[in-house]
Simulated assay, not measured.
Amino acid sequence: MAFTFNSNDIQMARKQVGFLGDYNVSIVSAEFKGLNKVQQEYFVLHLEIADGTEKGAQLIHTFMDDSKAEKAFRYREINALISGIGGIQDGQSFELKDVATFLPNKKLAVRVGKFDKDFYNGKTIYKPQITNFAQLMSESKPDVAQPRPQTDSSAQSSASSQTGITDPFAGMAEPTNSASAMPVDPFA
């Protein structure tokens, strides 16, 4: 079967979060991954911002049950997630392997509290990191005073000079969103 190119029908890459802030999200998918290297169960959530200027932006977060570890702390994120979506009674148990059956389409609020610097294919990238979970808010509140850092153009140009490949996106600024008010902290 032949493919017909249509320049008017191009799906852009997934939208990235442009600002730190507090966001209402919907769980797009939940995938149980099994055991990690230290024999702890973990799963990955794909989230999408549900409203506001960042609507449609994607987030990914990994949850780990380290409750049996000597210095356990990551399991608390699972408790915060469950508290945010509601509907589960205190003391009720469930299997992490079943997250794909009951987490998709649930809604909650998350705080994107920082952008972690990382490197991918010779380029500097900034990954949004979720630092808190809560129940839905009346609306998402991006902190426009804290935008995503710009990528390191020197890392991009040195990578392209090493490979001889020109990056057609190098030097392009990420889209910005405007908002007039500073967010109120719903997590306080």
Rank of each mutant, 00 (worst) to 15 (best):
L20W: 00
S83E: 14
N6F: 11
Q11E: 13
N177T: 11
K106T: 09
N105S: 13
M137G: 08
V44F: 06
G171W: 10
F94A: 01
T53S: 15
Y120Q: 11
D116P: 01
K71M: 05
H46M: 09
E95Y: 12
A179L: 09
A179T: 07
G122S: 07
S154A: 09
D185W: 04
F169W: 12
Q39V: 07
K106A: 10
Y23V: 02
N6S: 12
T131F: 00
D167L: 11
S178V: 11
E70M: 07
E70Y: 04
V112C: 03
A173H: 07
S160H: 03
I60Q: 12
L35P: 02
D152K: 11
T101M: 08
P186Q: 11
E95D: 15
E54P: 04
D66F: 00
G171A: 10
P104H: 02
F73D: 06
V144F: 15
T53H: 08
I78D: 03
L47H: 09
Y120T: 05
T62V: 13
E174M: 10
S178G: 11
N121W: 08
Q135K: 15
G84V: 01
I78R: 01
G87T: 03
G52D: 10
L35M: 14
P147F: 01
A179D: 05
N79M: 12
F187G: 08
L47E: 07
M64L: 15
A159N: 09
I165T: 11
Y42S: 04
